[in-house]
C-alpha cells in the first residue's frame, strides 16, 4: 500500500477515534467507532492480514457495534448530554495521555529493530484463513471445544441471573 493511503486511513482512524470521546450524543459516538474500526481494518489489509481485516469488519464493525447501538437506543441516556465537562479531569487525562505517548515514542526510538526496515514477509501458497482453520481444528482442537462449553456457561449464567422471576 502506498504511504499516501496509509496516512489517509490512519488519519481517518484517529479523527473518528477522537470523535468517539468528544461527541456528547452516544449514538454519534458509536457510529464514529464503526468508522474508526473500518480504518483499522484497512490498515490490517495493508499489512497482508486479510483474515483479521475481514473479521474486523464482520465481527466488530458489523455485529458488536450494531448490538451496541441497539442497547444505546433502548437505554435512556439523556443524562450524559446534560452533564457538565469537568475541565480539571480532562486536563489531567490529556496530561497522562501526552506523558504516555512521549514514553512510548522514547522507547520505540531507542529500540534496535525500529532503525532497520522490516523484512518482507515470506509468501506462502496457503491463504491465512486456511492456516487459522487448520490450527483451530488440529493443534488447538481441545481448547476450541472447551471455549464452546465456556460460552454455554456464560449463556446459562446470563439467563439465570437476569430472568425476572414470576411469583
Amino acid at each position: 500500500m502506498s504511504p499516501f493511503l496509509f496516512w489517509i486511513f490512519a488519519g481517518l482512524m484517529l479523527v473518528f477515534g477522537a470523535g468517539v470521546v468528544l461527541n456528547r450524543n452516544p449514538v454519534a459516538s458509536a457510529l464514529s467507532l464503526v468508522v474508526s474500526f473500518l480504518g483499522l481494518a484497512a490498515l490490517f489489509m495493508s499489512l497482508d492480514a486479510y483474515f483479521i481485516g475481514i473479521i474486523q469488519v464482520l465481527v466488530y464493525a458489523g455485529a458488536v457495534m450494531v448490538l451496541f447501538l441497539f442497547i444505546i437506543m433502548l437505554l435512556d441516556l439523556r443524562a450524559e448530554k446534560l452533564r457538565k465537562i469537568n475541565w480539571l479531569a480532562s486536563a489531567g487525562g490529556i496530561a497522562v495521555a501526552v506523558a504516555l505517548s512521549v514514553q512510548i515514542l522514547y522507547v520505540i526510538g531507542n529500540f534496535r529493530f525500529s532503525q532497520q526496515p522490516f523484512p518482507p514477509l515470506a509468501r506462502s501458497t496457503v491463504d491465512d484463513v486456511h492456516h487459522v482453520g487448520s490450527l483451530l481444528f488440529e493443534n488447538y482442537n481441545l481448547p476450541f471445544q472447551i471455549i464452546g462449553v465456556l460460552v454455554l456457561v456464560a449463556t446459562i449464567g446470563v439467563v439465570v441471573l437476569s430472568k425476572r422471576e414470576l411469583r
Partner: peptide, 21 residues
Amino acid sequence: LLMIFIGLELTGLSLYVMAGF
C-alpha cells in the same frame, strides 16, 4: 498454560454464577 487458563475461566465463570444464584 493456554489450556490451564481456559480451565480457570470455565471454573471461575460457573462459580461466579453459582455464588450469586
